[in-house]
């Protein structure tokens, strides 16, 4: 059986390795910002003072991000985390990752596909209904009651999907997508 100390050490190992990956991404981003700021037009034709060029602050920020990213990479590299890489990759296969993936998929389908294709209230109802059904049946960790979930999902979708439309567009006169 795993003890709390084991779990904490594992979490720390995962974070150290995740920090290392992020730090490298940040260094790459910092270098890209430095390059883009350096090559940014200096508006010589407009005779602006060289110390007021548009790329000045982004250049400093790029340098700052590269340095701090480098420091974070060095700090994370020094932390000994045996099995950290495997644990980090293993995160993708966890139930938590599945739940997050499903939310993002539902959100993207709603926002990028349904909105604009069908009326906003219909897209909202469809999203709410599917979201509740998925998390109360398929991804439910306890005992599921599909009939009860269906009734609740339908009720919440109709009341809130329609309610949001009415409150925003009809009462508060806010245009919806």
């Amino acid at each position: 059986m795993q003890t709390d100390a084991d779990t904490d050490a594992r979490q720390e190992g995962i974070r150290a390795r995740a920090d290392l990956v992020t730090a490298l991404v940040l260094v790459a981003l910092g270098l890209a910002v430095i390059y883009l700021s350096w090559t940014m037009p200096r508006l010589e034709a407009r005779r602006i003072h060289p110390s007021t060029i548009p790329g000045l602050v982004p250049l400093f920020l790029g340098v700052g991000l590269t340095l701090l990213g480098g420091l974070l990479a060095w700090r994370s590299w020094r932390i000994k985390a045996p099995g950290g890489w495997q644990d980090l990759i293993g995160l993708v296969r966890t139930r938590e990752a599945l739940r997050i993936g499903v939310i993002l998929a539902l959100a993207l389908v709603h926002t990028l596909v349904l909105v604009g294709l069908i009326p906003f209230w219909a897209a909202a109802m469809l999203f709410i209904f599917t979201f509740i059904m998925v998390f109360e049946t398929w991804l439910n960790e306890g005992s599921a009651d599909p009939v009860k979930s269906f009734i609740w999902a339908l009720a919440v979708a109709v009341v809130f999907g329609g309610g949001i439309y009415l409150v925003f567009e009809r009462i508060f006169l806010v245009r919806l997508p």
């Binding site: 959100a107 909202a124 709410i128 979201f131 919440v156």
Partner: peptide, 8 residues
């Protein structure tokens, strides 16, 4: 039930 509505 709550979070679905919050996303909208």
């Amino acid at each position: 039930r709550l979070m679905a509505v919050i996303y909208i």
